[in-house]
Computed example of a mutant assay.
Amino acid sequence: MDTEAVRSFVRAAELGQLQQAADELGVTQQAVSKRIATLERRLGRELFIRTARGVELTLDGQAFLPHARSLVIGVDRAVAAIRPGSRALRIDVLGLRSAQAVVLHDYWRAHPGTDLDVVTLRVDDPRVAVAAVQAGDVDASFRSVTDPATLPRDVRMIPAFDSALELLAGPRHPLAGARTLTPSQLRGHRIWVPGIAPGSEWSEFYDRLAGAFALRIDATGPNFGTEVLLDALADSDDLATLVGAGDRYLWPAQYDLRRIPIENPVLAYPLSLILPRTNPHPGLRAVVKHLRALPATPEPAWRPSWATTSRMNAGDRFSTTQ
């Protein structure tokens, strides 16, 4: 099986765009399309559905993706075994529009020579991300384990940065005209966060947030993706959601959606970085240094207690000189 065809499939699946995959792989979009078409003929299955927005995985594509990713990782490991230090720094983020991806993009623009591979494991359970770090499938993961005491001894979790939450609402929402909001002003309003996965870090975050400020967090309904959520907000006079200030979203101009900062206190979603305790990838040192230089979250700020404990634990700090 052509490993470069498999690599093209994996990147196209992760990015949702053939052109973006081609740009990252340093080939033309036509070359990526041909590789994937050859792979589909070899497997006798269609892996993608082509849409106006890019490509989406078929059920066969979804089933093939984790195995294809493992194959690519295995090839990279084989090359690294005989060419130490040659492999790109591979970091897992929750999504390519997330604040973590935006921060990594800023880092890469400041260090354009960096060989950086940003991936999305597409898992909700942080333990799966921890296992990926342990296995060397990724060098680090922007995930949080809400009980740091349960972390295996060979990995550590360090504070990365806070993502200040904003209210995202349509033009007819009662709070749409506000320049800023306080958490108390959100009470009684339906804050829709569909598809919160049980056992995920954000599930515990929203549970604690709702309890701390008596907020109505509605997780009903499946998560059909960002575009469907934005469509619903634009047409509603009562729906709103919470997004990170650093998250990147795009919507048609006629939606007229409003991003409203929340203050007094700032609602800070704490982002952590999970990495090996010993022998981390050499490229991580500069990334951690970049994270430490990010602007601090304005105070007063609210964070869940597990994030405060993690911040106070000096043993979780990653030395930039090790």
Rank of each mutant, 00 (worst) to 15 (best):
A129T: 05
W251S: 10
S305N: 09
A22I: 13
G170Y: 10
Q185M: 08
I36S: 01
R11H: 05
I73K: 06
T226R: 13
P270D: 00
T146M: 02
L18N: 06
V72L: 13
G26V: 08
P183I: 14
P304S: 14
D125S: 02
V155H: 15
R41A: 15
P112H: 14
L89F: 10
F213C: 05
P265Y: 10
A214E: 07
P276F: 06
T51F: 14
G244Q: 09
R258E: 11
A240T: 09
L267K: 12
I217Q: 03
A63G: 08
F64A: 14
A129I: 07
A212G: 01
Q322V: 00
A214P: 00
A80P: 05
Y269D: 14
Q100K: 01
A212T: 10
G61Y: 02
A140R: 11
G26Q: 03
L233P: 01
I73P: 01
E227V: 12
D231T: 10
A80I: 01
W108F: 10
L96K: 02
E201L: 05
R285F: 15
F161T: 15
M1S: 09
H189T: 08
Y249T: 08
P280I: 03
L65A: 05
A240Y: 07
S86G: 04
G199L: 13
L96H: 12
L294Y: 12
P84T: 12
V75I: 06
R259N: 02
H189A: 08
S319Y: 01
L18H: 06
P300W: 00
V133K: 07
A22P: 10
A99I: 13
A110V: 06
D115I: 01
A164I: 03
K34S: 04
R216D: 12
G188P: 15
R53Y: 10
L43W: 03
L18C: 06
H111C: 05
V79W: 03
E46Q: 11
L116K: 02
